[in-house]
């Protein structure tokens, strides 16, 4: 019964995407590109300098090297996940022959995660638009859940590097840039994967909650009640 309900909700979500495929793709691509532009803007504002170097990496070749030279297949994904495609950063030439002080690293694996986030965000927006009859409370709840979920994933998907933290891209660089203490940042770092999963979970759950098949009695009744409550000013 539950599987059936889930299946029908997935069908509604898929149908919504199909019906507005162009818009969904545009939103997904836009959110993904916008996310990286936002990260770059944050670096520029935080450090007060424009990037002065860009490096492209041969990602397919590097991934192939990893596959060939890693005996255990289970070791491959985490190593591939750290592979760069592009790097835009700031080289400080005050000392020696230059030090890459900060950089925005484009890692295909992380781009894929951000694209999934963007896709879920886009479907939630389309579902919300389609639910114009929804009560304000339901829209608010769905919007909040989507925002929190997207925030978690966006935060933990950041791939900025700073020569501190031994210059490896980590999501806690974003926290450090926001002024969070070093110890607190490292304390938080291990919970990154859980935040990511929680974020995706919230986004997916919201999408499913919004993807109500037409004429679902329970939801319709709750929506109806919400509408009545709102009308009475309970949520005012």
């Amino acid at each position: 019964m539950m599987a059936l309900a889930l299946g029908s909700r997935l069908a509604v979500a898929a149908g919504t995407i199909r019906s507005r495929l162009g818009l969904w793709l545009a939103l997904t691509a836009g959110f993904t590109v916008g996310y990286y532009l936002l990260l770059m803007a944050a670096l520029i504002v935080r450090f007060g300098a424009l990037p002065n170097y860009a490096t492209a990496y041969n990602w397919p070749k590097n991934v192939w090297t990893i596959f060939r030279s890693t005996p255990s297949f289970s070791d491959v994904p985490p190593i591939v996940a750290e592979e760069y495609l592009l790097e835009f950063g700031y080289m400080n030439y005050d000392y020696g022959h230059g030090i890459s002080e900060w950089a925005l690293n484009i890692l295909p694996y992380k781009v894929m995660l951000v694209a999934v986030l963007a896709g879920l965000l886009a479907v939630n927006i389309l579902l919300l638009r389609a639910k114009s009859a929804c009560s304000t409370a339901t829209r608010f709840k769905a919007g909040t859940a989507t925002g929190v979920g997207a925030g978690f994933v966006a935060l933990t998907s950041a791939t900025m590097s700073w020569v501190v933290c031994c210059a490896t891209p980590s999501w806690i660089v974003g926290l450090s840039m926001l002024g969070l203490g070093v110890s607190a940042s490292f304390w938080i770092e291990p919970i990154g994967p859980y935040l990511t999963m929680g974020g995706y979970g919230l986004l997916a759950a919201t999408a499913l909650a919004l993807a109500t098949p037409p004429g679902t009695p329970a939801t319709s009744a709750r929506d109806q009640q919400d509408k009545i409550s709102s009308a009475k000013g309970v949520h005012a």
Partner: peptide, 17 residues
């Protein structure tokens, strides 16, 4: 390959570069 710290060297060694 020249690096400003040891961390990236480890990542590159993991990738067998």
């Amino acid at each position: 390959a020249d690096y400003s710290s040891g961390g990236p060297i480890t990542n590159q060694m993991l990738a067998n570069k």
